[in-house]
Each structure stands twice: as C-alpha cells, then as structure tokens.
C-alpha cells in the first residue's frame, strides 16, 4: 500500500526534488510540505518555510484544517492532548496570513465526554474564525450514539449533522461517516455514509456548475487506505459518483493520524495529521492504536494544514505544518 502511494505521488511530482524520498521521510519525520492543486492534480512547491510557502498565501481563499485532537487523551503517546491542541491553536493565531475559517475533521474528543467537549470548545474559542466541525467515531462514542456531539454541534445541520456551505467560490460538503459502521462480522468494519446522507448530497450538488471547485470533508478516508484496519468508507464510490462532473474535487480526511494522499481522475484525497498523537503506517503494526514516539519527536508528527484557493485559477495549495515548525 505504502509503495503504491509513493508511486502515485511520484507520477504527479512536478517539483524539482525527489517526491518518493520526500514522502518517505515525511511519513514520520514531520516535514511540512506545501501543495498546490491544479485541476485536481497536486504538486509540491517546496518545503514549508521556503519562499513558495509564503507566496501561496497571497490572495484567494485560505482555510485551515485541524484534525484528531482527541482532547482527553492522556496516555504515553501524548500525556496532554489538550495541551498540543492548544499549541496548534496558538500556532494558527500566530500565522501572518489568517485563514478565513477553520475546519476540524473529527475526533475532537477522545471519549465523547462533556468535559472533553467543554475543554475543546474552550480551546477553540481562542480562534477568531468560525470552526466548521464534523465528528469522528470518538465524538459519537457516548452510550446515546452521538447525542453529546449533536446537541452541541448539530444545530442548523441536515440529517445527523451533515451540511454544506460556500466560501470564496468553493463549495464545501461536510459529510459524516461515523454513524453507520458495518460491524466486522462479515466485513472489514468499513465506515458508511448511508442512503439518507447520500441522497441529500446528490441534491446538494445538483444545481452547481461543473466548474465549481468542491472540497469534501469527512472523518474517515473516502478511499480505502487500509481495509484490514477499517480505514475506508464502503459507500464512498457513490458519493464520488455525484462529483464526477466537477473539474476539481478535493477530499480532506482525518482519522489515520498521518499524511497519505492519492489522486484518482478529478479527485485528490488527503488525510491530515493529528494534533494529538501519530498512528502507525497501514499494516506496519498489529493494530492501529496510538503510536509512542520519543517525546522530543512528538511535535514533528503532529500538525495543522492550510489550504489556499485562488478564484479563477482554481489551484488549491495545501500546506501541512508540523507543530514543531
């Protein structure tokens, strides 16, 4: 799987350095990389901190993705997940060009506890921007199957919390794939969007011009990163089918606590780092639990992501920044 990923990305490499080597090193070394996406094809412009990174922020829509903050987690892999979440927020606040808004792609909390949601909300209040959130499976793990999350964040959303919005000429679709898991009695336990949400989504994009750039947010990847660990969404092909006619589709996921990316036709898929703890690469460990790294390395494997879109040129520049940067 990992090798396949490297190949995919190598083909796309338009930058003046070795993409394969970079991705290998990025996997855990935590180097920030700047991405632009032209017509659905990302290419790397350079390492974060180089001039290109600064340029990408000039003009257009810039938004920022954070993910998998797991507020409440206090195990050896990160004894203070609230602390690293607050650090990530402090970094965002210190950015010279402020993103228009923030998206949080799920697993805000670790155990769906009120106190954890309270702490996370308190931390996010430090941001002056709106934070668009979607839940991860850790946010709907209360005995009431998501009531704690929906009571807090469900207002003004559709169905069980999904929604869409427009910003800077881009149509954003926030999908939820943590409610309808197929238990692994006969399957790998993949996520599902479910019929109700898919029908809503089909209608949601119906009136849009095909030239509208689409950004889809979902917690679990909308492509199968690693089936044995349930890292995929069974009915994602149906959702992507509704987006076939669009020239530029960017899917931003969390869940796997590491950067993985893949391009398929007009669609580019990206998973983000966690602000809390890393997880092993697909299949590299017996189970996908929190991965302990030496304390001094932790900040290099956590991070946030900025995305920049300039109207008319339709590039999305994606920059992953480790907390250590």
């Amino acid at each position: 799987m990992a090798d396949h990923e490297h190949k995919d990305n190598e083909q796309l490499g338009a930058a003046g350095f070795n993409r394969r080597g970079l991705l290998k090193c990025m996997a855990w070394a935590g180097t920030g990389v700047l991405w632009t996406v032209n017509g659905g094809v990302p290419r790397s412009l350079g390492l974060l901190g180089e001039a290109a990174a600064a340029e990408s922020h000039a003009g257009g829509l810039t938004f920022l993705q954070i993910s998998d903050s797991h507020v409440g987690f206090d195990k050896p892999a990160n004894p203070n997940a609230l602390g690293t979440f607050q650090e990530a927020i402090a970094k965002i606040k210190a950015m010279p060009t402020q993103p228009a808004f923030i998206v949080h792609t799920g697993d805000i909390t670790h155990l769906s506890k009120d106190k954890e949601f309270d702490d996370a909300d308190q931390a996010m209040k430090a941001l002056k921007q709106k934070v668009h959130v979607i839940p991860g499976e850790h946010d709907v793990a209360d005995a009431d199957n998501g009531k704690a999350y929906l009571d807090r964040y469900g207002k003004g959303t559709q169905g069980r919390g999904w929604y869409s919005f427009d910003a800077g000429g881009v149509h954003f679709i926030a999908l939820i794939n943590v409610f309808n898991f197929q238990p692994g009695f006969k399957s790998a336990g993949l996520a599902q969007l479910g019929d109700e949400q898919l029908e809503w989504m089909e209608k949601d994009v119906k009136g849009l011009s095909s030239s509208t750039p689409i950004v889809v947010l979902a917690h679990l990847p909308l492509w199968t990163v690693y089936e044995n660990w349930g890292w995929g969404t069974e009915d994602a092909p149906r959702a992507l089918g509704y987006l076939k006619r669009f020239g530029s589709v960017t899917v931003l996921n969390g869940h796997i606590h590491q950067i993985q990316q893949k391009i398929e036709g007009n669609v580019s898929f990206h998973t983000a780092r966690s602000t809390a703890f890393p997880q092993p690469a697909p299949g590299s460990a017996p189970a996908p639990g929190p991965m302990k790294v030496p304390a001094e390395q932790l900040h290099s494997v956590l991070g946030v992501r900025t995305v920049n879109y300039i109207r008319g040129k339709s590039p999305l520049a994606i920059v992953d920044t480790p907390l250590s940067a």
Binding site: F181, P183, G184, G189, G230
Partner: peptide, 12 residues
C-alpha cells in the same frame, strides 16, 4: 448476542 466496538467496528 453479537456485539462490536463502535469505535473500531472490525472488532466483534
């Protein structure tokens, strides 16, 4: 009674 982990649904 068949059960699973709602956080890691492949666990049954």
């Amino acid at each position: 009674y068949q059960y699973f982990c709602s956080i890691h649904p492949r666990m049954v």
